[in-house]
């Protein structure tokens, strides 16, 4: 088990390094204006060169990459250039993360609380009313572009219940709709996965044996099917959860929530190269970490993974 974790850890590390290198390379392809704050127009060619050289951007590429790694190792994400000139990116993030975390966590809790039981209900009621209703919901969420129902909720529901259209720190009522909107998609995914894995398990031979030995239906569901269905679920849950916490890019800008998602949109629009670089890195590390966590959890729950190395059967 320990070996497995170490192995997966190094795999994740390598993946992360590949991502960092790619992000680094992509940013060298961006227009260089992104490295100048206000007044890019007023500078002449020489002044521009001087600034770029000072920032190290005229060094040979391999040295730049090395410097970049060194800087990251120190935990330094660099300074913002345009969005808030000369401010450490980590300070900017410090302001933003609490908002994303607050909305992300509540949305996550909501979608787990509704999505998982919905999936279970759908599997137990296979081809019945609840299954059809749930499927209709999942199809709707996946087929209709999210922007449409997000907007619909924002415009009409706020109107009906007389809730403010935009986020305001002082009015908790205004926090409800963004949270619900954010949870709609993941609720559908959780329900869909849960239903699928439960049905997969319910059709397996060991369920027939459990039935033949006289276990009651509910007992088979609880102690065999449900538990086994969670194993494949568990692999996806961490990344799904982490992404929810990382903030919904679209919803944060829609409701003007001052979180990370909104920040990414602004940074891209305003071509703040270092900020984009830092955010992309954060989002990819979250993804890689989620996959890592999922694999570890899966290995904890599935004995076949731990022992894959040893000669098992005899």
């Amino acid at each position: 088990m320990f070996n497995y974790i170490i192995k997966r850890f190094f795999q994740s590390l390598i993946t992360l390094m590949v991502v960092i290198t790619i992000v680094f390379a992509l940013l060298r392809l961006m227009p260089e204006e992104g490295y100048f704050g206000e007044g890019y127009e007023k500078l002449d060619e020489q002044q521009r060169e001087a600034i770029l050289t000072q920032m190290g951007l005229r060094d040979p590429l391999h040295k730049q990459l090395l410097d970049f790694y060194k800087q990251l190792l120190r935990g330094d994400l660099g300074k913002s250039i345009i969005y808030r000139p000369k401010v450490d990116i980590s300070i900017i993030l410090n302001d933003k993360i609490p908002y994303s975390l607050r909305f992300g966590l509540s949305a996550m809790a909501l979608s787990l609380l509704i999505g998982l039981p919905l999936g279970i209900l759908m599997a137990l009621n296979h081809r019945g009313f609840w299954d059809k209703l749930g499927t209709a919901y999942i199809v709707f969420i996946n087929a209709v572009p999210a922007a449409i129902y997000y907007l619909f909720i924002q415009v009409y529901v706020t109107g009906i219940f007389k809730i403010p259209m935009l986020y305001s720190e002082s009015n908790p009522l205004s926090w409800i709709l963004p949270t619900i909107s954010m949870s709609l998609g993941s609720t559908a995914s959780y329900a869909m996965w849960m239903r699928r894995y439960m049905l997969d398990e319910m059709n397996k031979d060991y369920v027939k044996l459990a039935k033949a030995k006289g276990l009651s239906g509910p007992r088979i569901m609880l102690s065999h099917v449900l538990r086994n269905a969670f194993v494949p679920m568990v692999q996806y849950l961490p990344s799904a959860i982490l992404y929810t916490i990382a903030g919904s890019i679209y919803i944060e800008s829609l409701y003007s929530i001052p979180g990370m998602g909104g920040l990414l949109v602004t940074a891209i629009q305003r071509q703040d190269n270092t900020l984009v670089q830092a955010l992309v890195l954060i989002y990819s590390s979250i993804g890689i970490f989620g996959l890592f966590l999922g694999d570890i959890l899966m290995a904890l729950l599935d004995p076949r993974i731990k022992l894959s190395k040893k000669a098992g059967a005899r």
Binding site: A210, N228, D302
Partner: peptide
């Protein structure tokens, strides 16, 4: 009680 044909899948793997 019953013993089935397929022992490889008749037991819960977890």
């Amino acid at each position: 009680a019953m013993v089935f044909q397929e022992p490889m899948t008749a037991l819960n793997p977890l």
